[in-house]
Design a protein around this nucleic acid. Structure first.
Lengths: 177, 177
DNA sequence: CGAATCCGTTAGTCGCACTAACAGTATGAC
DNA sequence: GTCATACTGTTAGTGCGACTAACGGATTCG
């Protein structure tokens, strides 16, 4: 009954073994279930390092693209800028990034990775890679490449369509933000 | 309390175009983003019929597998039995299913699809199929099959491992259906 | 009988995606 | 130079999905 720890999703028994093929084989469902599983894998790994995936995402984006403002970072990672503030707070509290006002544009903060941040990211990297490996365990290298390719094409298509859709009717009744 | 119009995710601009390949190409992330997109597609379609995906899942499971108790249904669909009660409530309110106490086992309710439920499901089916089609738009038939196959293999693997993991642990007797 | 287990149900947690609004700052049009 | 517009960081809050905990009642089993 009671577990020593708090396993976020420990006792299985809730995966659908009896689901009818109509549902089970639905691409949207396949994506959802596999994404959930992948998320567990990644989160469990990151949790062992006291991190969440957003910490990883932000640190990676910063390391790859250099210092950035929060909304820049938000665009790079896909995290909403409203949520980004908490992420930066947590990273800054742990000394993994620094938040300094931008003298050139006083609206912004410039976020910079610290040396510890970089070291931390290296640990997270191995953990995330291990999770990917666990996730893709049943597939050989060719199949992994195929899957990645297919998913990337799907993603590209979806980004193109939503981008053009946003350009179509830019702001119905804007004046809000 | 309720919005006449619910733009769940209307004006895009929050997809990651500048994400570093490290993150962008990560299978776990590809799965997550694509799953989210697929979810939008399906939910938007179902919302037009006043339904959610759980209504669809429950109705499909009932139609395919016949009348069932709520926890049975929960096992078939992957919906937790704590959440199932709301789903059945809503379906029952709309006259799509009937909840009657099981005379053989007075703990359970037997859930049965009504004729209207079946008709409703037929509409949902077309809507869901359309969503799958929109989702997979950039892929031809071969690629769709490939993707489904790969995702299915991933899912099978994950179900096997979590099942055996559950069998490992304190999980005493499992043999149900 | 009693213990263990299952059933439906209620309540509540946590994380994620997303909207709304606001104050401060910058920018462009006029 | 002013004024509308747009962007930045921030706070607050919504809705949903996954999941845990615990209950009272029904059942089954040792």
């Amino acid at each position: 009954m009671k577990n020593d720890e708090t396993p976020r999703h420990a006792p299985g028994a809730m995966t659908d073994h009896a689901a009818p093929p109509r549902i089970r084989g639905l691409p949207s469902r396949l994506l959802a279930v596999n994404a959930l599983h992948a998320d567990h894998l990644v989160n469990d790994g990151l949790a062992a390092e006291g991190a969440r995936k957003w910490h990883f995402a932000a640190l990676t984006a910063l390391t790859a693209g250099g210092p950035a403002s929060q909304s820049d970072l938000s665009r790079r990672t896909g995290i909403y800028r409203s949520d980004m503030v908490a992420v930066v707070n947590e990273l800054a509290e742990r000394g993994l990034v620094e938040r300094t006002p931008d003298p050139a544009d006083r609206r912004r903060n410039v976020i910079t990775v610290t040396t510890e941040g970089r070291a931390h990211l290296r640990r997270l990297d191995t953990v995330v890679d291990a999770a990917q490996d666990a996730l893709l365990a049943p597939l050989d290298a060719d199949d992994r490449a195929r899957l990645t390719d297919l998913l990337t094409r799907l993603l590209d298509h979806h980004e193109r369509t939503t981008a053009s859709a946003a350009a179509d009717h830019p702001a119905p009744d804007a004046a809000d933000d």
